[in-house]
């Protein structure tokens, strides 16, 4: 045990409490366990770590939600980030997962704005960035498939995709922020939901809105199905006229976008 009576665990507890503010019971005074001198007092020295703790996490969140940060501005984003960090401190060795609950937290804290939906879209884009690579089932593979067995063409989406339900206008709002187009701002939001498909192609992440019929078959394809089953599903929908033609169109576009995984 060191001379000042604090064990290693107690010293870490004391510093942890001062840095995070998470523990306040029996908080040791800075001077009681940290050396202060003419350069800086004990409290000022601890404050360096306390400042860096929050600054580092805010910076990490900003990198995960760049357009959200841009849309609300640095001051408000920092305020939001601090509130989030206090309720959802990082529990993983990597900062990569820090923002996983940010959208959900925002939906409870700022439900009147589009912030949560924007965060949801940005998190999905960040989240698929490092999903395991898969061999794509591309258009050449479809062309090479025996025509008499087209119905059996396997259809499974790559793991690096997400299907999101967000407020209508979210994808457009995301684009406007990136383009610095403030002509309508949040006026672009309209009542009702929209479905956004997010996916990674090589090293680039894309997203686009999809209609209800495509959403239904995408959900089917997410876990693996066949072209025949897609056609059946499309045929059962009143909003799809030519079920076979529409199904081929979907499959072709998914294959072009490298959204399909090789069986």
């Amino acid at each position: 045990m060191p001379r000042d009576g604090l064990t290693l665990a107690e010293a870490q507890d004391a510093l942890f409490a001062h840095i995070t503010g998470f523990i306040d019971r029996g908080l040791a005074a800075p001077d009681s366990f940290v050396v202060g001198d003419v350069r800086a007092t004990a409290a000022e020295r601890i404050a360096v770590y306390a400042f860096m703790y929050r600054a580092r996490l805010v910076e990490a969140l900003e990198s995960q939600f760049p357009r959200l940060a841009k849309s609300v501005g640095g001051e408000i984003f920092t305020e939001l980030a601090h509130g989030y960090i206090d309720e959802h401190p990082s529990t993983r060795p990597s900062l990569r997962f820090l923002g996983s609950s940010f959208a959900d937290w925002l939906s409870h804290r700022r439900p009147q704005l589009m912030l949560a939906d924007l965060a949801k879209l940005e998190w999905a884009r960040a989240d698929i960035f490092d999903v395991r690579d898969e061999i794509a089932f591309g258009v050449d593979a479809i062309r090479a498939w025996p025509q008499d067995r087209f119905a059996a063409i396997p259809v499974r989406l790559i793991n690096a995709h997400r299907l999101l339900v967000v407020g209508r206008g979210t994808a457009e709002h995301w684009r406007r922020i990136g383009d610095e187009d403030t002509s309508q701002g949040e006026g672009a939001c309209r009542p009702g939901p929209e479905v956004v498909l997010v996916w990674r192609q090589g090293v680039a992440v894309y997203h686009r809105t999809v209609d209800e019929s495509e959403r239904t078959v995408l959900e089917l394809a997410a876990t693996g199905t066949s072209l025949g089953r897609i056609c059946e599903c499309a045929g059962a929908r009143a909003d799809v006229g030519d079920a076979v033609g529409q199904s081929f169109e979907w499959i072709w576009s998914w294959a072009n976008d490298q959204l399909l995984a090789s069986p």
Binding site: M1, P2, L8, D13, L15, F16, F22, Y49, L57
Partner: peptide
């Protein structure tokens, strides 16, 4: 250094008291 306590990761490289207890640990 250390950077975790109470299940929380501080993502920092925090110092320790340089003691025999710390050395053994």
């Amino acid at each position: 250094s250390w950077g975790t306590a109470h299940g929380i990761s501080l993502h920092d490289l925090l110092p320790i008291p340089y003691t025999e207890e710390s050395l053994v640990h």
